[in-house]
Write a protein that binds this DNA or RNA. Structure first.
Lengths: 252, 252
DNA sequence: GCTATCCTATGACCTAAGGTAAGAGTCAAA
DNA sequence: TTTGACTCTTACCTTAGGTCATAGGATAGC
């Protein structure tokens, strides 16, 4: 019969020496032999028992329970496991609830991480953004302040989505620039308007303002410049489309 | 400002005094005031902080983590919660695996809890069972021994099911006793045969043996006695049905 | 003022399943 | 014989408090 030292048994079963010491002290797994110098040696039977112990430990049973089920011959294992499983189910439910609350909390937090003034113009080169803002402030001081105030209260996630939506809508519109700008069945203009509304917040005489933006697109090529080149065709198309939209959709 | 003693704050927040002592010692929640005699008094701010602590504790965060997130102003709570949630998901998966293994183990165990000799005849009065077995052993010693040997290897659950099935089949057959015993469309006789086969195990010359059992039903009224009264009509019906079944279905 | 009762503080030990370390002894090979 | 690997025991540490034990403080009734 091969005898195993503590270290050998530990390695064979994938546990530490400390664990075997503990199991010995608690009576869960006694060595087959104790030498005069108190060295522990284990046989095949002990290895098997250890493997059983580890199996039940994997099921989440406590060492005390394992000791009971291994040593009591009349132990009702099925009943014990059934009960144990119920406990595990409860734990799982607790975890579910925790994760649900975490999700809610994260959403809440994200909603509360407001935009900073920096992030508001993060998509543009810094100098250009400053210049732009200055001009806008001169032309429509109240409007710009109102818009910034509202955007700064927005959540980061919300602003990101708005920005991306606007970009995507613009790309779709640019692809339509050779079509009829008065075509009523282009929902992209409606979407463009919705984005602008969200950027501006509540605005007086919105129809006129929106048409004014259309004028601006034509007058100021910076608004329709992509990758360094101004797209006058797109600007003209947008101007016509926006005027048409305002006249037909924003009457009341 | 209302000051709360330890007990008052504990009751207000639903924790124990010990908990507040602990939180004080670890720095998680210091009282607003410490009297000369070391009495602790808490204000409104501390109550709020305690509620925050308890909230995060419900999410499964450790006290150390809570202390960090409450006291570090630049703590990335979203990141922490996201990571924490992942850990919880892992735990949940572990639990799932445990429960799965438990289920398998239970099935295994149930299959391995063998019948005892007692249980084999548990449905009958003890003396009758003994007498019956003695007679059977005299008449068909090898057959009876073989059958018992096999049944004892059966699982309890399997035997229970077999017993109940047999009982149910017999009841159905008893209800048919005024019908034609040679009617081929009664699956109950087939089921009866299946049960008998399972009780007997592998048997030589099964057709003859089955017909022999039919004879026995007529010769020995004990086999067809229900609630103390022998049912000769049922016995004759069964005999005829079993002979017919053996002759038509057990030819090869 | 005295006392009974309640409240509070501190300290110590306990939980489960080991981790980690210290100090001392033992074994086997060079 | 020395060295390095191994082993022994003892003991303290971890979480988040629970449960005493002892001693001092506050308050209400008398």
């Amino acid at each position: 019969m091969k005898q195993l030292s503590v270290k050998e048994l530990a390695r064979a079963a994938g546990v530490t020496v400390r664990t075997l010491h503990l199991y010995d002290r608690t009576g869960l797994l006694k060595p087959a032999l104790r030498t005069e110098k108190k060295y522990r040696y284990y046989g095949k039977a002990e290895l098997l028992r250890l493997q059983q112990i580890l199996f039940y430990k994997e099921l989440g049973l406590s060492l005390a329970e394992i000791a009971a089920l291994l040593d009591a011959p009349d132990f009702d294992l099925v009943k014990a496991l059934t009960g144990h499983k119920k406990a595990l189910q409860q734990k799982q439910q607790q975890l579910s609830k925790m994760m649900e609350t975490i999700d809610k909390t994260i959403l809440n937090l994200k909603g509360k991480i407001n935009m900073t003034h920096e992030e508001l113009y993060a998509g543009l080169p810094r100098e250009q953004a400053q210049q732009w803002r200055k001009e806008a402030l001169e032309k429509w001081p109240d409007q710009v302040k109102h818009s910034e105030k509202m955007l700064l209260k927005m959540s980061r996630a919300g602003f990101d989505i708005l920005q991306q939506t606007f970009k995507s809508v613009n790309e779709q519109l640019a692809a339509l620039k050779k079509e009829d700008p008065q075509s009523p069945q282009s929902p992209q203009v409606q979407q463009h308007y919705d984005c602008i509304l969200k950027f501006w917040g509540k605005t007086d005489n919105i129809a006129a303002a929106y048409k004014g933006l259309g004028d601006l697109y034509v007058a100021d090529t910076r608004y329709t410049t992509v990758n360094g080149t101004a797209d006058r065709e797109f600007a003209a198309f947008m101007n016509a489309a926006m005027i048409h939209f305002a006249d037909t959709q924003l009457k009341n």
